[in-house]
Every structure is written in C-alpha cells, then in structure tokens.
Design a protein around this nucleic acid. Structure first.
Length: 311
DNA sequence: TGCAGTGTTGCTTC
DNA sequence: CGAAGCAACACTGC
C-alpha cells in the first residue's frame, strides 16, 4: 500500500533509472471500449483516452519524476506530465521484459539478471512503457485500482487530481504549528481518520498513521480537539519520524509494494503496531498488547496500555 | 465453499 | 455542508 515513503522511494528510483530516456511505445491491458465509472473517463482505463495518451507520449523524453502526496508525476519533454497513483497494490519497476503476442502478457526477459523482478507479487503487469534503449518501465497492479492519466505540466497541480490535497508533511516550511492548524480543521474527527484525510495532510495512510500514533502514545480514536497541544506537537514529531524512517528503509513491502528494481522495502520489519495484533507492545517497560479495531472502516492497530484515549 | 479481510479514493447517501 | 458507506478489483486465508 504505497503511502508517502513508498511513493518517494519509487520517484527516487525513477530519477535514477528512466530520467533522460525516450519513450518508444506504451502498452496496457486496462483500456476498455466502455468504462464502468465516470471517474475512469480521463484515465487509461478508457480506450479512447489511452489511444490519445499513446500518441502523445511516444517519442517524448522523460525530464524528471516528482511526488505530490501519493501521486507520481513524470514530466515529459513536450510539456505533458504523466500522473500515476498506485492506489493499493500498484508498484513500478524498471528492467528488461518481453511481450508474448499469443498471451498478450509481459514477463522478465530471459537475459534479465535481476531475479527480484520474478517475485510472484511482481506479475500482473498493467502498463508497460518501452524506451528506445529497449528496456521497460512497468506498472504491476493485481487489483487494477491504479490511476494513470495525462496532464499539462503547467496545470498539473491545479487539476482535480492534485488541487485540494493538504500540505506535504515533510516540506521544510511545515512545522508543528502548521500541523496543529491543519488537524484543527477537523476538531470532532477521530485522530487516525484525520491523519489519513488527504485534504488535511497528504501522504499518510493506514500503516504510517498506526505507527505515528503508537510512537506518540495517542489512541487512534482520540478526538482531535481533546488532544492537548503538547500531545499534538508530539504527534507531529512522530509523523515526521515514521515517514523519514519509512523512506530510510526503502518503503514498506508488507503487501505488494516493491522498489524500482523489484526488491522489497525494509520498513515492514520496523513495525511497532501495524498488523501486530496480539503481540506484546514493544515500548520499553510497557506491559500492553497490540489490539485491532476498525476505525472509519479501516483497521487500526494500537497498544492497549500506553496509547492514551483523549475524548 | 463462501465470505471476510486487505487499503485508497471518489461517488453516493444521509 | 460533513460524515459514513460502498464500489472499484483480485486474491488470500479461514
């Protein structure tokens, strides 16, 4: 489940691999003649959109990749930007792949030396960009939730895809004061849900919200306005700490997420709460155990003892 | 075997 | 207006 650290790791990987390369061709198995949902009309799930997308990006050079919230932005030489949101199970990889015309499927090329690309989770390739150097950038996505669309670079941040997103929690100008002001916009909200609300702060999802609340010793069901300012400040520090740690460990591969070379991110081994239901709390001297509860339709994992409920 | 669980977003409903 | 529920989708595990 790519959150800020996973998307950042992918973007860093793109800038090390495909930056400067020229797109020769694009393939997808997502495009359909008719799209089931209105919000798919301006994505490559629409066949007419994909045909236009393909014509536009062929022959264009990749200038750079950047991240906004959980979105990947790939800037092209003609003033267009490819926007990719990996949603739940999406991940991008770069390597040598071959296309089987009979099955219409892509697999790692026989001369590809990187075994990580053959990880079972790295199947289900939905979009494949082939570069003029003969190599591929692929989007793997079992559940086909990922969004791929095309924007004008100049207008990208003003489009519905990016406008309305909250500030970047790791931006240099984002401090504790700004954090408290942002979450204060949802005074009656449950803190876990508010942390994950992309219009409040961008980039935090289920894993990092659980980890940040564990670190800050705050119960996920705490009501924002009831959390004392000093505790909110601690939470801000915790949010930044877990996001930085996630990036340092190359993201979280508990599920399908993989780095650009197909290898697993190592943050999965650093959890103190997420998916540790029934385990003893790892906080020094704490005698609690990790519980699981559904909060706002999502599973929250937290310590039964040291995470204080403010209500 | 059937169904709950997995998590992000956006649309619908209240 | 905001909050909550559900659909999009495919696979795993009990």
């Amino acid at each position: 489940m790519p959150e800020l650290p996973e998307v950042q790791t992918t973007v860093d990987g793109l800038n090390k691999t495909v930056k400067g390369l020229t797109i020769q061709e694009v393939w997808t198995d997502l495009a359909k003649k008719t799209v089931s949902r209105p919000d798919y009309k301006d994505t490559i799930k629409s066949l007419s959109f994909f045909e236009n997308f393909r014509e536009t990006v062929r022959g264009k050079k990749i200038l750079s990749a950047e991240r906004r919230a959980k979105n990947i932005l790939i800037n092209l030489s003609d003033g267009h930007t490819i926007l990719i949101h990996m949603k739940m199970t999406g991940h991008m990889m770069y390597g040598s792949y071959t296309h089987d015309a009979t099955t219409n499927e892509w697999t790692p090329a026989t001369h590809e030396k990187n075994d990580a690309l053959r990880d079972p989770f790295n199947k289900f390739l939905r979009v494949v960009f082939t570069f003029t150097n003969g190599k591929q950038l692929v989007l793997s996505d079992v559940r086909k939730f990922a969004k791929v669309t095309l924007l004008s670079t100049k207008e990208a941040h003003g489009t519905k895809h990016l406008a309305g997103l909250g500030p970047e929690p790791l931006h240099t100008t984002f401090d504790a004061h700004a954090f408290i002001e942002r979450i204060g916009k949802k005074p009656n909200g449950k803190i876990k849900s508010v942390l994950m609300d992309q219009s409040v702060i961008s980039g935090v999802g289920n894993i990092y919200s659980d980890e940040a609340l564990w670190l800050a010793s705050i119960h996920p069901l705490s009501i924002v306005s009831k959390i004392p300012p000093v505790e909110q400040k601690k939470l801000f520090t915790a949010v930044q700490a877990v996001l930085h740690k996630g990036i340092d460990f190359g993201g979280d591969s508990t599920s399908d997420y993989r780095q650009i070379d197909g290898t697993r991110g190592k943050f999965s081994y650093q959890h103190n709460a997420y998916r540790l239901t029934g385990k003893k709390c790892m906080k020094p001297k704490c005698s609690g155990a990790i519980l699981r509860r559904v909060v706002g339709g999502r599973s929250a994992h937290f310590c039964s003892i040291h995470q204080k409920l403010w209500e």
